[in-house]
Design a binder for these strands. Structure first.
Length: 464
DNA sequence: GCTC
DNA sequence: AGCAACG
DNA sequence: GAGCCGCTTGCT
């Protein structure tokens, strides 16, 4: 039993090494929960989506709980190092424990009936049951701004990701940091982060961030870069053209149509969507899909599937078990969802892959909750059935897990992406080559995890 | 930025 | 080819 | 000091 605990701990720490954290938070919420959503016309029943994975949820929770208790009952050695290590261990076990609790949440969407009982705390879907308190907002808020500056304005993705990873560790700590000593040795917290944390603890702010904030260029470019479709390069060009505000950009002809939509609905898009509303829109999409092609499978992935109380956008992953009816389906679905006045604007579209190509049709756009004008980001992806498991993993995320799985795959001689796991060989030049035709067959997510020998994670445990 |  | 996006 | 996901995908 102890072995299991140790293993789980080491593995988690290993994970955190690579990176961590949940999607960026933008703090404005303006939800006026209103009328019930319209379900699509004829069919009011919810199509049954087979999701074997969900059955294992509760089991996992219990297992984690037991491990946690075992861990704590096991402390009787008392060297300083041991106690130090044990303290950290408890920290991470607590993290796991909480993920476990979140575990039930993910399934609540599937069994939306019960609103009371022992799972009440979870069933109510109060933000707190999904989102750990984050006792170190004083630090993570600053790091988050730096993350955005490095990402949106400076185009330094690597450095941006480092702040992202540091935050993911810090926001999960079960205590409020009072001294740098407490973060030394934590994954993703190196010398520079320690120094900055020390400064924040001492002065309440970061001189680096303050410096950035005084710089008009950084401020403006960062603002532009936050618009959907505008990256660091374009943002900088727009600044050099003399633009200073988002209003200035409205008469900028050079913007692509997607960027124009991103601009027009910028504030809309940045608002988080309450989980229960996503659930309602999921039903709408499912019903619509079923009315077009019975037997079609529609699942809302992303942070929704990972159990978050508030989500930034919606990611729908679609397939058909018969292996052929998915072809051409996306166009029909989009058409009908527009008729229903649900889908509103297109951002990028890649559809109509011919059946024999076994390609993935994608749609990125905007939609609105029935009866409201407020826009949301929505993605639709249609997979041929044999690629579905890979698509589901990729579009459930989170991004850190995806990268980690891909790195692991590479280490084991494979190449992983959202439509397969492919053995890698080397050509004469030693270049990596993989035959897309000879991918490893996996029909469930679990088979992919197993193939990579990566410990199984419930969707709600994937918020690394 | 962090890690090996 | 460069840019931007997705998890 | 090198590597950091994807022989991503779509758009211009």
């Amino acid at each position: 039993m102890f072995m299991q605990v140790a293993f789980k701990y080491e593995w988690l720490e290993d994970c955190l090494k690579e990176g961590t954290r949940l999607p960026v938070e933008k703090y404005s919420l303006l939800n006026a929960p209103t009328s019930a959503p319209a379900s699509s016309d004829e069919s009011t029943h919810s199509p049954v989506i087979s999701e074997d994975e969900f059955h294992h949820g509760l089991l996992s929770v219990v297992k984690v709980k037991r491990s946690h208790e075992t861990d704590r009952s096991n402390e009787d050695s008392d060297s300083e190092e041991d106690s130090h290590k044990r303290k950290k261990e408890e920290v991470w076990m607590d993290v796991i424990h909480r993920s476990g609790k979140l575990g039930v949440v993910g399934k609540s969407g599937m069994t939306s009936q019960r609103d009371e009982g022992k799972d009440m705390e979870i069933q109510t879907q109060s933000p707190q049951s999904y989102t750990p308190p984050n006792l170190n907002k004083n630090i993570t808020a600053i790091f988050d701004e730096l993350k955005n500056i490095f990402g949106d304005a400076l185009g330094d993705d690597r450095r941006s990701f480092s702040y992202y990873k540091a935050n993911s560790v810090l926001e999960k700590l079960p205590f409020k940091i009072t001294s740098v000593e407490e973060v030394k040795g934590l994954p993703a917290i190196g010398k520079s982060m320690q120094d900055q944390i020390a400064e924040i603890l001492k002065t309440g702010k970061s001189s680096r961030l303050e410096h950035f904030k005084e710089d008009e260029k950084v401020r403006v470019v960062s603002l532009f870069g936050a618009v959907w479709g505008i990256g660091p390069s374009t943002a900088q060009k727009l600044y050099e053209k003399g633009h200073k505000t988002l209003e200035d950009l409205q008469n900028e002809e050079s913007l692509t149509s997607a960027q124009k939509y991103g601009l027009r609905f910028h504030t809309d898009i940045n608002k988080k969507i309450p989980r229960h509303e996503v659930q309602e829109m999921e039903l709408l999409v499912k019903n619509c899909a079923e009315s077009i092609t019975p037997g079609i499978s529609v699942l809302c992935g992303g942070s929704y599937r990972r159990g978050k109380a508030l989500v930034g956008d919606m990611d729908f992953v679609v397939t058909h078990p018969d292996g052929k009816s998915h072809a051409g389906f996306l166009r029909k679905l989009v058409y009908k969802l527009k008729q229903l006045d649900f889908l509103t604007e297109d951002l990028t579209v890649g559809m109509d892959h011919p059946l024999e190509e076994r390609g993935v049709d994608t749609y990125f756009g905007l939609c609105k909750y029935p009866g409201r004008e407020q826009r949301h980001r929505i993605d639709l992806k249609v997979y041929p059935h044999e690629k579905y498991a890979f698509g589901l993993i990729a579009w459930t995320g989170n991004d850190v897990l995806n990268r980690r799985l891909r790195l692991l795959a590479e280490a084991k001689g494979y190449r992983l992406d959202d439509h397969g796991l492919f053995p890698v060989t080397r050509d004469a030049q030693g270049q990596r080559v993989s035959e897309r035709s000879s991918g490893v067959l996996c029909s469930t997510e679990r088979e992919v995890f197993d193939k990579l020998e990566f410990p199984w994670l419930e969707p709600n445990e994937r918020n690394l």
